[in-house]
């Protein structure tokens, strides 16, 4: 039995503690926005926030989540798809197939939580997700555009 707080909601899930958080989110909680692509912590498709920090949920046993920790998935990033990153993503048509995008957006959002004005090098280091469609140029522009809107005091 795992107790999880996901997107502000408490859940009790009957599941083997070794199950990666990714699969609990997808299969027990139905939050399929968080994706499986490699399962070995290398591509970033499964990125969620634990207490605001980006983690790769495919290699994180659900038992390692501590009581009181708060998990945010792409579904909970904003109530209405209005996070500055989401707004920038829509304005720039960042996604192609879209499969990697929840992970990229969550990685970028965690970066902005810590560093509201990241440099290109910060982006390189922290948004190192794999995207086989190749959206990187627009991802970079999207992050910078979101920062601009945040600085302007608007939620973009």
């Amino acid at each position: 039995m795992a107790k999880l707080k996901v997107n502000g909601q408490e859940h009790e899930v009957e599941v083997d503690g070794s199950t990666p958080l990714l699969w609990v989110l997808r299969e027990q909680l139905g939050l399929t926005g968080t994706k499986y692509a490699c399962g070995i912590g290398i591509c970033g498709s499964c990125t969620v926030h634990v207490d605001g920090k980006a983690v790769r949920s495919c290699t994180l046993p659900v038992s390692s989540i501590e009581a009181g920790q708060s998990i945010t998935t792409i579904e909970g990033l904003s109530p209405d798809n209005s996070h500055p990153l989401q707004a920038a993503w829509k304005a720039l048509d960042v996604p192609q197939c879209g499969y990697c995008q929840p992970g990229i957006i969550m990685a970028a959002a965690a970066l902005l939580n810590e560093n509201p004005d990241p440099s290109d090098a910060d982006i390189d280091a922290r948004v190192d997700n794999i995207c086989r469609c190749g959206t990187f140029n627009r991802v970079r522009r999207g992050i910078h555009q979101a920062v601009k809107h945040m600085k302007g005091g608007r939620s973009a």
């Binding site: 939050l31 926005g33 579904e75 798809n81 989401q86 829509k90 048509d93 879209g98 957006i105």
Partner: peptide
């Protein structure tokens, strides 16, 4: 097809 690809709503076959 962009909006649902930014908030996790896009349902892929795997989902």
């Amino acid at each position: 097809d962009t909006a649902d690809k930014t908030n996790g709503k896009q349902v892929f076959g795997a989902d």
